[in-house]
Amino acid sequence: MSATLLWWGLAVLTVAGAAVVLLTREMMRMILGLGAFLLGIAGLYAWLGFGLLAVAELFVYVGGVLVLFLLAITAMGRDADARAIVRRFDLGAALISIGLAVVLVVALRGLLPAAVPVSGVTVESTADYLLGVWLPQFEIAGVVLLAGLAAALAIVQGGDDE
C-alpha cells in the first residue's frame, strides 16, 4: 500500500514538473520544473529497485545537465523580457501528441506486465554486464561521451563568423 502511494506521489511530481516545463513562461521556473521532473524520474527508478540508475540520474541530470542549463542561461545574459517564453496552444500538436501516446500504449500494453519493484539488482551484477558481455557497448558509450565533449567545445569556441 505504501509502495503504491509512493509511486503515485512520484508520478504526480514527475507530471507536475513536466507540466511546468511545458506551460510556464518564465525561464527560471521552467528550469525548476525540469528539476522536479528529473527528481521524479530518479525517484521512480529507485522505486523500481534500480538504485544505481537513480543515483546516476541525480548526478548526471540533476547535478550536471540542469546546472548546465542554468549556466547557459546565465552566460547568455538574456534580460528579463527575453526570459519570458512565448507559448500558445496548438490543437494540431495536441492531437498529434495524444495520438502518439494512445498508439504507444496500445502497441506496448501486451509487452509490459504490471511493473513491480525488483530486488537483488546490485552494482556488482550491473557491472558484470557492463564490463563483461557489454564491454564493447560500454566502450562505445565512452567514445560517444568524449566525442560529445569535443563537439560541444568546438561548437562553443568556433563560429563567430557573422
Partner: peptide, 20 residues
C-alpha cells in the same frame, strides 16, 4: 533486470552527451 539497468545507464550517458 541488472542487464536492463546497465542498458539504461548507457542510454542515460549518451543522452547526457546529446544534451551537452
Amino acid at each position: 533486470p541488472a542487464a536492463g539497468q546497465g542498458y539504461a545507464l548507457l542510454v542515460l550517458a549518451v543522452g547526457a552527451a546529446g544534451a551537452a
